[in-house]
């Protein structure tokens, strides 16, 4: 049954990808060239509302928003694209450029050395990529354990090979855990200047302000208010309209 459903979905996606999607991309590209960025965005958004996504799609929307001068949404869509095509050179360049145009110049706290190292090594992988990596490592270990019965060479280096694989496996699992934990809590400020308050009320005292494109961590949600944490550790409540979450929980 599951196999049948998966097959139907795959066929549907492939058919959509081959015809409608290409048409949409072509149409949007024409709008983009003509400078009709809002129309191009509408075309791309139609794919998103159809339940499809790709790094390229988010990248193009980010470009369109940048051209319209909306740095907040541009940053948001580039962030979304980064989850799917983190190794794309154009994306990296555009993301850096847009960050440099932000009021706070995209300043962020430097993570610890270990984390920076992990980001560098695993930065090229998506969440699915890391999942696949973990599975491959797992199968590799099992294969080693099985082949040791039949191959002397494997038996001789078994401990070394399993130790190395196990270390990579544990680190990859940690990175996956971190990525999954962050998913759903990363958000980007869309408003030019958003006031972060002590309490989730519009007449509460303003604690600090965050500018467009700033990345924050969502801690809690209460009706129309997000409790957010800035990179410097300051926390407060901000209107839901002022920010957008990069990826909902359960999304990549």
């Amino acid at each position: 049954m599951i196999r049948h459903i998966a097959l139907i979905l795959l066929m549907a996606v492939t058919a959509y990808g081959s015809d409608t999607t290409k048409e949409v991309f072509k149409k949007a590209a024409v709008y983009y060239v003509e400078g009709k960025y809002e129309s191009a965005i509408a075309q791309y958004e139609s794919l998103l509302t159809g339940g499809l996504e790709s790094g390229e799609l988010y990248y193009n929307i980010g470009n369109c928003y940048f051209k319209t001068g909306d740095l907040g949404r541009s940053t948001l869509y580039y962030e979304r694209a980064k989850r799917l095509i983190p190794n794309d050179a154009d994306l990296k360049a555009n993301y850096e450029f847009v960050r440099s145009q932000l009021p706070d110049k995209g300043k962020s706290q430097q993570p610890a050395l270990f984390k920076r190292l992990l980001d560098r090594v695993f930065g090229v992988f998506t969440i699915d990529g890391i999942c696949v990596m973990i599975t491959v490592l797992y199968i590799f270990v099992v294969a080693l354990l099985i082949t040791r019965f039949y191959l002397d060479a494997v038996r001789r280096y078994l401990l070394l090979l399993i130790s190395i694989t196990a270390i990579v496996f544990v680190v990859a699992s940690f990175v996956l855990y971190e990525r999954i934990s962050v998913a759903g809590s990363e958000a980007v400020v869309l408003a030019d200047k958003a006031e972060v308050r002590y309490e989730p009320f519009s007449d509460a005292t303003v604690f600090f302000t965050i500018t467009v494109g700033t990345k924050v961590q969502v801690q809690q949600i209460k009706s129309d208010w997000y409790k957010v944490r800035r990179l410097d550790g300051k926390q407060g409540w901000v209107s839901r309209k002022a920010i957008a979450v990069v990826a909902e929980k359960g999304e990549q």
Binding site: I2, L9, V13, Y16, G17, T21, K22, V24, F25, K26, A28, A29, Y32, L47, L48, G51, L52, E53, S54, G55, E56, L57, Y59, N60, N63, C64, F66, K67, L84, I85, D90, A93, N94, F97, V98, I127, D128, C131, V132, T135, Y138, L176, I180, E248, G250, E251, Q252
Partner: peptide, 29 residues
Amino acid sequence: DIAYIKEAPGALKIKGRPLYLNPLYWLLH
């Protein structure tokens, strides 16, 4: 300035279904 848009849609997939939430993924293990 920013680089030009992508003309190909890339690897389109159904939104919001990471591998780790798929039971088949864990069944494989």
